[in-house]
Each structure stands twice: as structure tokens, then as C-alpha cells.
Simulated assay, not measured.
Amino acid sequence: MITSALLAGYALLVGAVVPRFLARAPWPHRAPALAVAVWLLLMLTFVVSAALAAHHLVMTDRHVHEGLVGLLSACGLLADATGATETVVVADPTLWDAAGLAAAGSVVALPLFWLLRTAWTARAERRRQLDTLRLIGRPSPAYGATVVEHPVAAVYCLPARPARVVVTRGALDALDDEQLRAALAHERAHIDGRHHLVQMLLRAFARAFPKLPLARHAQEQSLLLLEMAADDTALRLHSRDALATALCEVAAGRVPRPALGMGGPSALIRLRRVLTPQPRPHGATRFGVALAAAGAPLFPLLLGCGPF
């Protein structure tokens, strides 16, 4: 009972308390890629903690005190060994054992179900958009993009197979060569970074736990952070003025649902960040944050599955 209470408290801390502080912290905007990794690890930590808490709450004391060995024996996957010299017997799982396993499994199965459903829906949407692009778009070998005749300036990528970067006629008319290439570099950063996969994880977690502060903050913050990470990649090859101008011109452009666009509601925040750069967190700070985030999902495993 004590172990289950500790695990439940840890899940509550990760799911409700930590996200509020992390969402207000200033450093994520200075290290967006690291911050996205932290959000994803917090999501994993919550699932592990909640699953183990449910397991320990329902399982019998015998299996609880035996930690991971008890869990495996309840599944019928491991024999119970009460001593080195005693006869090894297989523990028969009880009704409570099955209930504990079902409770823990549901916490894991719920986000997995939504992940599969989200991935299936996104794949169908990308296929429809690709079919549309084949009809209305024309390739531009000079920019490695697909041009769509539309007066509103927009630049976006479609992370399909093959991935496409799309530019509207309005963007070609509004941007000069350097600005356009900066915008294209931003979109290719999304493709190379597999940011659409991160989006699917965030969306699935939010649907699995819609009332959880971690789900809400992780999705809101990470979508902005992914755009900032793509901005940083584009700035490695292009000037701040070029990227900032491109960002202004395409800010109002709307993109299809399965696509990742350079504009959108986060454009103003990102524009200020591009024009007034802040130093990255110190290397020791980044290492400490990464170490703490990586260790977060390990703690409930040690607490719940260790021989305590």
C-alpha cells in the first residue's frame, strides 16, 4: 500500500505539478529541442508511474513485496523460488492478480490505442493531400518544392512518402530568393527531425488523458518548441533578417491539417525570438536537465519493481 501511494503521488507530481512550472520556465525557448525531449520523457514517466501504481494497488501483498519477480510470477511467466534449496513451484495467478494486471495494462493500452488511431488518421489525411497536390501542384526543381497556384503566401511541408515541401504562388511573389530558401530550410528541418511523429505522440497522449495538465501543457508547449527548433536549424544557414521576413510574410497562411506550416498563431512569439536572440543555457544546465529527465521514468521502475 505504501508503494502504491508513493507511485500515485509521483504520477500526480509529474502529471499535474511539474508541467505548470515547466510551462512557465524561460529556458525551454532557449533550448527547444531539449525541452521537447523533456516533455516526452515526462509523458513516459506518467504512464509508467500510473501503471505501476495501479498494479501495486490491486495486486496481493505477496507479489507487491516481491517486486518485479512477483509481477512476472503473477503473469505465470516466472516460477516462485522461496529459497535456493527449496523446490521451485509456479504461482497460480488469482483474480486479484488478473485485476492488477488489467489495471496496469489499461494505463499503457489507452495511449497506445490513441497513438495507433492517430497515426492511421494522419496517414489517410496525408494520402488525400498528396493526391490533391498531384492534381494542382507542379514541381520546382530549383527549390526542391511543389508550387501551388494560390494568392495567399504559405510555405509548409507534408511529411508523407515521399515528403513534400509546398510553396504557394503568393509566397513566391512576396519573398526574395534568400527569404524563400530560409523558409524552405525551416520546413525541411521539420521533415528531417521527424516532427510529425512527435506531434502524433502528443496528440495521442492528449486524447488518452484529456483532463491531465501534463497532456495539455505538453501539446501546447511542444508544438511551439518544434517550430522554434526548426527556426534554429534554418538559422544555421540563413540570416535572421531573411528568416524573420519570411516568417512575417507567411504568418497568415493556412495549411492543410496533416501538414506542418511555417506560419500560424506562434509566428509573433517566434519572430521576437528570432530578432532578439537569447544565449543557450549553460552546458552544465543542459546536461543536468537531460540527466534529470532521463532518470524520471527510471525512478518508478526502481520503486515499483525493486526488491523493497
Results as ranks from 00 to 15, higher is better:
P162K: 05
H282G: 14
K211D: 12
K211C: 10
V90H: 15
R188M: 00
T60S: 08
V148H: 07
L247N: 04
E249S: 06
L57I: 08
H55F: 08
G105W: 14
G295D: 01
H65I: 15
G67D: 13
P151Q: 05
G100N: 08
L158I: 05
G137R: 03
A109P: 09
G83I: 15
R203G: 03
A153W: 00
A119Y: 14
M1L: 07
V289S: 03
L72I: 11
P258V: 03
L135E: 15
D177C: 05
D192A: 15
R24W: 06
R203W: 02
R181V: 09
L226C: 05
R30I: 12
V148P: 07
A234N: 00
V36Y: 01
P28R: 10
H195D: 12
G105A: 15
D232L: 01
L275N: 03
L175D: 01
L77M: 09
G263C: 06
P159D: 13
L71G: 09
T85I: 14
Y143A: 01
L135A: 15
P28Y: 13
P141M: 09
A119C: 12
T87I: 15
M43C: 00
R123V: 02
A215D: 06
D232N: 02
H29L: 06
A174Q: 06
L133F: 11
L224C: 11
P151C: 11
A246I: 09
A91F: 12
V289E: 02
L13P: 08
A74R: 09
R30V: 13
A208F: 04
R138V: 15
R169A: 13
P307S: 08
E187C: 01
L302A: 04
V14H: 09
L212A: 01
L158F: 00
L101T: 07
H186I: 02
V274T: 03
H282D: 15
P213H: 02
G193Y: 08
S239D: 10
D177P: 01
Q219R: 14
Q221H: 08
A246Q: 10
A8I: 10
H196F: 02
F113V: 08
H195Y: 10
F205M: 12
G137L: 11
L237A: 14
A31F: 07
R188F: 01
D173Y: 01
T121G: 14
G15Q: 12
V167I: 10
S222Q: 05
R164Y: 13
A81G: 11
A33Y: 13
R164H: 09
P26H: 07
L212E: 03
Q221T: 01
A284F: 10
Y10A: 03
A81R: 15
L130A: 04
P256G: 12
R169S: 14
A5H: 05
